[in-house]
Design a protein around this nucleic acid. Structure first.
Length: 199
DNA sequence: AGCACGATAAGA
DNA sequence: CTTATCGTGCTA
């Protein structure tokens, strides 16, 4: 358990975004706060492919205070708030290639007592973390984590467990109905049959 | 099914 | 100022 919680090296993030989105499945996402450490296995991701992807915040190289981190090196946290929620992405692509992978679902691994406290409205364990806004709340990820490098506490990603390519399913992304033909691209990946998929 | 919630950004 | 958004939880 302890060894599998050691951060992945920076070199892990030097791979094409569509491959990274699949490589992240099974990896362990961890967050440490003053209350302790909470973490879970990543079971669902989505790729956002930058300038050419109408669904991406960085479409057409749109560069704002919010998207700035995506133009830098990969392996950092891109958090943004939508309505009342915070969503967590892993920055991908090299410098000036503003791509990212959205984490949409995790399977609780450690700190389950913390997650239960942070998700008082969830009726079942699965509802702790089966959505992008839910898992950030369960782990204690906030906008204060924007830009953090993901190879050290308080926010990091560890090897977790191995996922065979035969266990990985793919399909269209969620919540981007207004993005032209990009809405049909199969850039969402998940572990087939896992209970913590968002839908 | 619909709708409120409200951080960020763009357009009028 | 108004509108839209990579979502969640409420009311029905």
């Amino acid at each position: 358990m302890y060894n599998s919680s050691e951060p992945l090296d920076q070199s892990f993030y030097n791979q094409p975004t569509l491959e990274l989105a699949q490589s992240l499945l099974g990896k362990l996402l961890l967050k440490e706060t003053e209350d302790g450490i909470a973490g879970g296995y990543i079971v669902e991701t989505e790729s956002y492919m930058g300038p050419a992807d109408r669904a991406a915040h960085s479409f057409n190289n749109k560069r704002t205070k919010r998207t700035e981190i995506m133009f830098g090196r990969p392996g950092h946290a891109y958090t943004y708030s939508m309505h009342t929620h915070c969503l967590f992405n892993v920055v991908s692509g090299d410098i000036d290639h503003p791509e990212a992978v959205l984490i949409r679902g995790i399977e609780p691994c450690t700190g389950e007592d913390l997650m239960e406290l942070r998700r008082p409205k969830a009726k079942t364990k699965k509802q702790w973390t089966n959505g992008p806004g839910k898992l950030t709340k369960a782990l204690g990820i906030t906008m204060a984590d924007y830009g953090r490098k993901l190879d050290q506490p308080p926010l990091w990603i560890a090897p977790g467990k191995t996922v065979k390519s035969s266990e990985i399913a793919s399909g269209p992304r969620i919540g981007i109905e207004n993005s032209g033909e990009a809405k049909d691209y199969p850039w969402r990946f998940w572990i087939e049959g896992n209970a913590f998929i968002s839908r």
